[in-house]
Write a protein that binds this DNA or RNA. Structure first.
Ligand SMILES: [Zn+2]
Ligand SMILES: [Zn+2]
Ligand SMILES: [Zn+2]
Ligand SMILES: [Zn+2]
Lengths: 142, 142
DNA sequence: AACTTAATTGATACTCTATCTCAATTAGAA
DNA sequence: TTCTAATTGAGATAGAGTATCAATTAAGTT
């Protein structure tokens, strides 16, 4: 396979998982869709890429990616289906407008001190985080 | 009704919603179950309290509480159903172990500065937040 | 390049959560 | 008490995600 492998694919392999066609397709879809996608959207786009990939594999892959923190499911717009958020370097931060469900991402991270403090105090090993703020976006604020 | 009303019930009323029997029952179940409950658990416990309350009302109430930030759905242990987390004063912080799905809560909040900064920079009005750390708990770290 | 094997896959039937509909009820104001 | 819009419960329906299992495949070994 001469295909260029993304960093995340390497992480998959490093964690002892096979780089299968189904998994690489899901990864590609996630990386090409900008960061916030529902499972229905992933299903649809994977199917468009290769209709022979089964739904079960897509869900299995999303579960696997979740456990590896490549992706994190979150509930935007309180629907049934989670929205999968890419976690670029293990962390992600956004604001969800409680009125229109718009998602505003931001990069600033002020949690490295707190990460170290929690690891020391609780004996845990932290590898990522998600910060969600809720409120009204500039438009909905009137 | 001579029943003592919780602070959250007052918030419900203040937001212009009726304090119905179904809503107060869901609220009671949430407050009595310590903070992390799935919709199935809420359904079951509400039903135990009063079997005449319909499933649809429970889901409608969970949606309403979500939009009011009384509760926030999150994705613990990759099951189908979200886990509803109580947001005591608009914010909540926890660590999810990616190995055993244990949830460790903590109170420390270092986000008030960032809240003010985001409001100023982006023109938003923030009313709450959820901080989720991922990693290995002390037991799973070996 | 062929061999080996455990991991992974896809089809499909199935489970079960959540939504929809609508007539009946109810909270809360007057 | 009367009034009315908000809310409810039942039951039917939709649709997301899972279980099963024989067939396939990634990737290490020879
Ligand atoms: Zn908005
Ligand atoms: Zn961060
Ligand atoms: Zn653990
Ligand atoms: Zn906080």
């Amino acid at each position: 396979m001469s295909e260029q492998l993304s960093l995340r694919a390497e992480r998959l392999r490093a964690a002892g998982h096979k780089l299968t066609h189904a998994r690489l397709s899901v990864l590609r879809v996630l990386e090409e869709s900008g960061g916030h996608v529902t499972s229905a959207e992933v299903l649809e786009r994977v199917s468009a890429l290769d209709a022979s990939i089964g739904r079960a594999s897509v869900f299995r892959t999303l579960d696997l990616f979740t456990s590896l923190l490549i992706v994190r499911p979150t509930y935007i717009d309180s629907s049934v289906t989670p929205t999968y958020v890419l976690m670029p370097e293990g962390h992600h931060h956004h604001i969800i407008c409680t009125n229109c469900n718009r998602v505003i991402e931001f990069e600033d991270c002020c949690l490295s001190e707190m990460t170290a403090e929690l690891e020391a105090r609780l004996g845990v090993k932290l590898t990522g985080h998600l910060v969600e703020f809720y409120g009204l976006c500039d438009r909905c604020r009137q």
